[in-house]
Design a protein around this nucleic acid. Structure first.
Length: 258
DNA sequence: ATGGTTGCGTAGCAA
């Protein structure tokens, strides 16, 4: 069984103890991280190696930053840190082949507000990422695309769809961009299974949103066809969000019978 | 329309 997870940690410096504890408890084979907010020189590779994980990472000062942890002995290979033909200093993508699976970790642009410059950057970024992933899928049979998509796929992924109607994370162009990505042959593993209604992966820090159970599901694990057929479970582990000094996101997980 | 909270870095931006 291959257990794969994604977690936006909102600073790995702050969240390293949370990641160590969660890995010890949940034992993921592969864990994709976003918003590490660490330059590569400061990545805690030794501490994670002591926990039994290889690390590959692509960071920058202050913002963004992605990493893929993989449980030994699988060695990450063929690492890619940039979308081809898309000039971008922001460290938002990381791909590696691990145990015959092409793992593509995405920290999708937030976009701030519909119509803003950042929104246009988000849509251009998504188009470029989709072109890249199309090529990756032609080159690899088993592909997992996971991360913080900063898009709620459907209204049922939003605590108040009317309030969020055509707002950032929910607008039609963003959802259509996600559909185009999924149209390459990728499936949102979470929806392969019956789930509790009102399941979220992110809750705003403000206004006691977590305690009030008001969030969005914007963190996804997508799988290519052969992996989708082998997917035995997909779920959200809300426990890390309950802990002291949590990330605003919680891990999302998929398990594959391979 | 704005605010609220957290992280980084020590002001103000990003989310």
């Amino acid at each position: 069984m291959l257990k794969v997870a994604s977690w936006n940690v909102n600073s790995l410096n702050v969240r390293l103890p949370h990641v160590q504890a969660w890995c010890a408890a949940a034992q993921p084979d592969i864990l994709a991280l976003q918003e590490t907010k660490l330059v590569d020189e400061k990545f805690p590779a030794e501490a994670l190696a002591e926990a039994g994980y290889h690390s590959v990472f692509s960071g920058q000062p202050t913002y963004n930053g992605v990493a893929i942890l993989s449980r030994e002995p699988a060695e990450p290979d063929d690492i890619v840190t940039d979308i081809p033909d898309f000039d971008d200093p922001q460290r938002r993508v990381l791909a590696a082949t691990i145990g015959g699976v092409r793992v593509i970790d995405l920290y999708v642009v937030n976009g701030k507000e519909v119509g803003s410059d950042k929104y246009e950057y988000k849509l251009a970024w998504l188009a470029a990422a989709t072109r890249w992933i199309e090529a990756e899928m032609k080159a690899h049979e088993r592909v997992i695309v996971l991360g913080d998509f900063n898009i709620a796929p459907e209204d049922r992924d939003v605590y108040d769809p009317e309030a969020w109607h055509e707002k950032i994370l929910c607008s039609t162009p963003e959802r259509e961009a996600l559909q185009r990505l999924c149209g390459l042959g990728l499936t949102d593993t979470f929806r392969l299974f019956e789930q509790e209604e009102r399941s979220w992966s992110w809750w705003d820090y403000r206004m006691n949103m977590f305690r009030r159970k008001l969030g969005l599901r914007i963190d996804l694990v997508l799988s290519s066809k052969s992996l989708t057929e082998a997917c035995g479970a997909a779920y959200i582990d809300v426990e890390p969000r309950r802990q002291d000094r949590p990330s605003d996101h919680t891990p999302v997980i998929a398990e594959f019978k391979i």
